[in-house]
Design a protein around this nucleic acid. Structure first.
Lengths: 145, 145
DNA sequence: GTTTATGCAAACAGTTTGCATGTAC
DNA sequence: GTACATGCAAACTGTTTGCATAAAC
C-alpha cells in the first residue's frame, strides 16, 4: 500500500528519532504547495503567517536536507532555493525561454535515458541530477522567423 | 584572428566603459586557473595573496556576472560557486560526488548530443544549458562495494 | 585632468547559537 | 516524565556601502 507524502515524512522523522511536529509539517507543506523552489526568505515569509519562527525554519531545512527530503537548486539570480525531492515531488526538468521568460517542465524520460547512457563505462554512478535548458520556446522561435 | 581570453576581457570591459585593471585580471585568472567553481570565500582567499581587497572581489564578481563573463553554479553543500562561462572556459558539465563532495568536469560532447536529440520535434530551440549530475565517483563507489 | 577603481571601516542582512519554556511521545 | 522542539534575543558571518585616495585613460 501507498503512504501519503505526509505519512512518509512522519515515518522518516521517526526513523531518525525526530518528532512529527506541526511546524515541520507546515514547512513541508509550504514547499509542497510552491510551484517553484523557494528561497529561505520566501519560505520564512510563507510559514511566518502560521506563526513558525525563523530559527525553526533554518533548523528544519537542515534536517530535511540531511534526510534527503529537500534539495537545493540555484535560482536565476544566484540565490539558493529549496524544493522537495522525489518521491515527495515529481521528477522533471525545466526549459526556460530566453525571450519571454516562461518556464515549462520537460518530461524527464527521454532526457534522462540519454544522460545515463552517456555515463556508461565512466565508472561514475549517477544518483540524481538537475537539468535546465535555455533557449526559445515554440512561440518565440516562430516570431523571429 | 583569435583574441586571447584576457584580450577579450579587456575588450568587453572597454565596451562598457570599464577599465582593465590588475585586480580585475587577478580575479579573472583565479577563476580561470581553478579546476572547480569557486565560492566567494575561496576566491577572496586566493586573490588576497595578491593583495586584492574583499570589497573589490564582490564588486568585480557583480560586474563579471552582468557582463556574462562568469556564471553561478551550485556547489555540493548548497553554497553558490562562480566559474567562467564559455568562451572563457571550455564548455563542460559537473559530476558531484555525494560521498566525498569532489566536483569533476565531464566532457560535454556525449551528454550534449544526447540532450539535443531528446528535444527533436518538440518545437523548442535550445541555446544553452547547465547540467549537474550527482552520484558516487569511482573511488567512493568502489569503497562501498 | 577627469573619471573610474580601490581600500578601509562602518553599517547591514542573513544565519546560527544558548538557554529557558513548551510539547510530542 | 523525559527528551526533543521551539521562541527569543544575542552573537556571529558574510555582504554591501560611503567616502577619501590612488590609478587608468
Amino acid at each position: 500500500m501507498e503512504l501519503s507524502p505526509e505519512e512518509q515524512l512522519k515515518t522518516l522523522l521517526r526513523a531518525r528519532g525526530l518528532r512529527f511536529t506541526p511546524d515541520r509539517l507546515r514547512v513541508f507543506r509550504a514547499l509542497a504547495d510552491a510551484p517553484q523552489p523557494l528561497s529561505v526568505p520566501a519560505l520564512i515569509n510563507i510559514v511566518a503567517t502560521d506563526g513558525v519562527n525563523q530559527a525553526t525554519v533554518y533548523r528544519t531545512l537542515e534536517q530535511f536536507l540531511a534526510m534527503a527530503v529537500v534539495q537545493t537548486v540555484l535560482l536565476h539570480d544566484g540565490v539558493v532555493g529549496y524544493e522537495l525531492v522525489p518521491p515527495f515531488s515529481s521528477h522533471h526538468h525545466h526549459f526556460i525561454c530566453l525571450d519571454c521568460g516562461t518556464i515549462q517542465a520537460l518530461p524527464a524520460d527521454s532526457v534522462d535515458t540519454a544522460l545515463f547512457k552517456s555515463l556508461e563505462g565512466s565508472g561514475l554512478k549517477a544518483m540524481g541530477h538537475k537539468i535546465d535548458i535555455y533557449g526559445q520556446c515554440e512561440r518565440c522561435h516562430s516570431d523571429t522567423d
